[in-house]
C-alpha cells in the first residue's frame, strides 16, 4: 500500500465518520460543524487528487462561507432537533 492510498483511506474514513455524525447528531450546530469538517476533508482530497483550484474554492466557499451562513441560520432559528 503506497502513501497515496494510505492517506486517502484515512481521510475517507474520517470523512464518512463526520458525515454519519452530521446525519445522526441531535444538536444542529454540531451537525453543521460536522458538515464543515466533511467539506474540509473533501477539499484535502481534492488537493491529493491534483485539483488545487477546486481545493481552494471548496475550502473557502464550501467549508468556510457556507458553514458561516448555516450557523447564522441556526442562530436565527433553533439549535436542537426534536
Amino acid at each position: 500500500m503506497d502513501l497515496f492510498t494510505l492517506v486517502s483511506l484515512i481521510l475517507i474514513i474520517a470523512m464518512l465518520i463526520a458525515a454519519v455524525v452530521a446525519a445522526e447528531i441531535k444538536d444542529l450546530l454540531s451537525a453543521a460543524i460536522a458538515m464543515g469538517i466533511v467539506s474540509l476533508i473533501v477539499s484535502i482530497l481534492f488537493y491529493i487528487l491534483q485539483a488545487p483550484d477546486v481545493a481552494i474554492t471548496e475550502a473557502s466557499i464550501g467549508a468556510g462561507l457556507s458553514l458561516a451562513i448555516m450557523i447564522f441560520a441556526i442562530k436565527h432559528t433553533e439549535r436542537w432537533e426534536k
Binding site: P52, D53, A55, I56, T57, A59, S60, I61, G64, L65
Partner: peptide
C-alpha cells in the same frame, strides 16, 4: 491556482 470564485469568497 485560484481565480474569481475563491478570491471573491476571501473578500466576502
Amino acid at each position: 491556482p485560484g481565480g474569481g470564485f475563491p478570491g471573491g469568497a476571501v473578500i466576502a
